[in-house]
Simulated scan of single mutants.
Amino acid sequence: MDESRRDRDEEGRARNARPRDGLGRPLPYGTPGVERQPEGVVRSPDETVREAQRLLDAGMPFHAHEVFEDAWKSGPDAERELWRGLAQMAVGLTHSARGNTAGGARLLRRGAAAVEAFREAEPYGIGVGPLIAWARELAGRVEDFGQGPGDARVVDAAAEAPRLLPGGHTA
Results as ranks from 00 to 15, higher is better:
residue 2 D to M: 03
residue 5 R to H: 02
residue 5 R to M: 04
residue 6 R to W: 08
residue 7 D to L: 06
residue 8 R to K: 05
residue 9 D to G: 07
residue 10 E to L: 13
residue 11 E to K: 12
residue 11 E to Q: 13
residue 12 G to T: 00
residue 13 R to C: 06
residue 14 A to P: 01
residue 14 A to Q: 03
residue 18 R to D: 09
residue 18 R to A: 09
residue 20 R to D: 01
residue 21 D to A: 07
residue 21 D to P: 00
residue 21 D to E: 01
residue 21 D to L: 04
residue 21 D to H: 03
residue 24 G to R: 00
residue 26 P to N: 05
residue 26 P to Q: 00
residue 27 L to Y: 02
residue 28 P to V: 03
residue 28 P to G: 04
residue 28 P to K: 01
residue 28 P to D: 03
residue 29 Y to Q: 11
residue 30 G to R: 04
residue 31 T to K: 13
residue 31 T to C: 12
residue 34 V to A: 00
residue 36 R to V: 02
residue 38 P to Q: 11
residue 42 V to E: 14
residue 43 R to V: 09
residue 43 R to K: 12
residue 43 R to L: 14
residue 43 R to G: 09
residue 44 S to N: 10
residue 44 S to D: 05
residue 45 P to H: 11
residue 46 D to I: 13
residue 49 V to Q: 06
residue 50 R to T: 12
residue 51 E to P: 11
residue 52 A to V: 07
residue 52 A to H: 00
residue 53 Q to T: 01
residue 53 Q to G: 06
residue 54 R to L: 05
residue 54 R to M: 07
residue 57 D to G: 02
residue 57 D to F: 00
residue 62 F to L: 04
residue 62 F to Q: 05
residue 64 A to W: 06
residue 66 E to C: 08
residue 66 E to A: 04
residue 66 E to L: 13
residue 66 E to I: 04
residue 67 V to I: 15
residue 68 F to A: 06
residue 68 F to H: 09
residue 70 D to M: 07
residue 70 D to S: 08
residue 71 A to M: 13
residue 71 A to V: 13
residue 71 A to F: 10
residue 73 K to W: 14
residue 75 G to D: 06
residue 75 G to N: 08
residue 76 P to Y: 11
residue 76 P to T: 10
residue 78 A to K: 15
residue 80 R to H: 15
residue 81 E to C: 11
residue 83 W to N: 00
residue 85 G to R: 09
residue 86 L to N: 13
residue 86 L to C: 11
residue 86 L to G: 10
residue 87 A to F: 12
residue 88 Q to G: 14
residue 89 M to Q: 12
residue 89 M to L: 14
residue 90 A to T: 10
residue 90 A to M: 14
residue 90 A to Q: 14
residue 91 V to Q: 10
residue 91 V to P: 11
residue 91 V to N: 12
residue 91 V to G: 12
residue 93 L to Q: 15
residue 94 T to K: 15
residue 95 H to M: 14
residue 96 S to K: 06
residue 97 A to D: 13
residue 98 R to Q: 14
residue 99 G to S: 07
residue 101 T to R: 14
residue 104 G to R: 07
residue 105 A to I: 10
residue 106 R to M: 11
residue 107 L to Y: 06
residue 108 L to I: 01
residue 109 R to H: 01
residue 110 R to F: 08
residue 111 G to F: 05
residue 111 G to E: 03
residue 111 G to S: 04
residue 112 A to K: 05
residue 112 A to N: 01
residue 112 A to T: 04
residue 114 A to M: 01
residue 116 E to H: 00
residue 116 E to F: 03
residue 116 E to Q: 12
residue 117 A to C: 02
residue 117 A to V: 08
residue 118 F to K: 01
residue 119 R to T: 07
residue 119 R to A: 13
residue 120 E to H: 05
residue 121 A to F: 04
residue 122 E to C: 00
residue 124 Y to N: 06
residue 125 G to N: 04
residue 126 I to D: 07
residue 127 G to A: 15
residue 132 I to C: 06
residue 134 W to K: 02
residue 135 A to T: 07
residue 137 E to S: 09
residue 138 L to S: 09
residue 138 L to A: 06
residue 139 A to L: 02
residue 139 A to W: 08
residue 139 A to Y: 09
residue 141 R to E: 15
residue 142 V to K: 04
residue 142 V to D: 09
residue 142 V to R: 13
residue 144 D to C: 02
residue 144 D to W: 01
